[in-house]
Design a binder for these strands. Structure first.
Lengths: 172, 172
DNA sequence: GCACGCACGAAAAAATCTTGCATTCATCAG
DNA sequence: CTGATGAATGCAAGATTTTTTCGTGCGTGC
């Protein structure tokens, strides 16, 4: 296995410990981000390490925040939430406190699955999951129309969730 | 616990078995989609069911595709991929075969974390993860400029990943 | 009323995860 | 050059979890 190192952590990242990851760690992450129910013994065989060694590395990356969460991915359509919508939101004012207020409001809404604060022609991009267009309409009223600071928003309804996941392209 | 049922599956959903979920299932899903390393015993205590009962329900939902995957969520910044970008892509032609070709091309790119085919002013929305703006520039060349069918695209660079996840709002 | 299907809980069995410990290897000071 | 130190490893034992087995209760339909 080649020598490859990633200096974890960046200027943007929050309170992470910024640990160093080697090729073993990346190989382990690559397995876990596709299936974290893989037994450590199997991972060990795949990366040529003993199960305890794998375990200690996973633990270390967990503690350091490299692994942010371990989650089950649910098909929204299967639980009565078949509609995915993208929303670009443009604010009237970009005052810091108003930006923060918007962040809090969007984060607090369970329908808002993802929220990014962006540069460009919009200020926020949201990924929204709703059971019906009616529910979306209600959400827009609650989140946008009742918010004096929202100048406008543009809606993109997803017809096909072509590729969905949080998989990160890992350097090899 | 109240009687609440969700008829899983919809016209949009693929080859799923469309099983019926009750309040127990939803409660279990709600735990798993936040932390799937929670022991079944603990889940059982939370929802008032034995561990084996919890296990059987999880297995059933797994088989039916309600649970699409079990994954570790990795902080991109920690593995040298600090930049998240949204891209709206507009195609020249909306011929079905060209749409499909675009889907395949976007899906195949590891930098494309998420890809949705949408209605509205754009045809596709992408979530892209890259190590640098240079890498993004290279990706746009490969994915958009070398593709004669891409009319134009708009880029939104994420300054803050305010809320990221695949959590689905579950009916209670 | 009775058989059947279905889901449950308790307990046992199997597998996995976790920890302790001795060893190896690389680094570094003397 | 030699020995100390720290970090990471593998093996093996112990703790925990997952999975299976089995008997029971409940609702449905014949």
């Amino acid at each position: 296995m080649q020598d490859f190192f990633v200096r974890a952590g960046s200027a943007v990242s929050r309170s992470s410990s910024s640990i160093t990851l080697d090729a073993f760690d990346l190989a382990i992450l690559n397995i876990l981000q596709r299936d974290n129910s893989t037994p450590q013994r199997v991972i060990g065989e795949a990366v040529n390490l003993s199960a305890p060694a794998v375990q200690r590395r996973i633990r270390r990356m967990d503690d350091a925040g490299v692994i942010q969460a371990n989650v089950a991915v649910i098909d929204p359509a299967e639980v009565g939430q078949p509609i995915t919508i993208f929303v670009e939101v443009e604010l009237e004012s970009e005052r810091a406190d108003l930006i923060d207020a918007a962040k809090r409001a969007f984060t607090a809404a369970p329908e808002v699955q993802q929220c990014y604060y962006v540069t460009g022609e919009a200020d926020f991009v949201l990924v929204v999951i709703v059971p019906s267009m009616g529910a979306y309409e209600a959400l827009t009223r609650r989140l946008f129309f009742d918010n004096a600071n929202v100048k406008k928003f543009r809606t993109f309804v997803a017809m096909d969730r072509v590729k969905v996941g949080l998989t990160v392209p890992l350097p090899r």
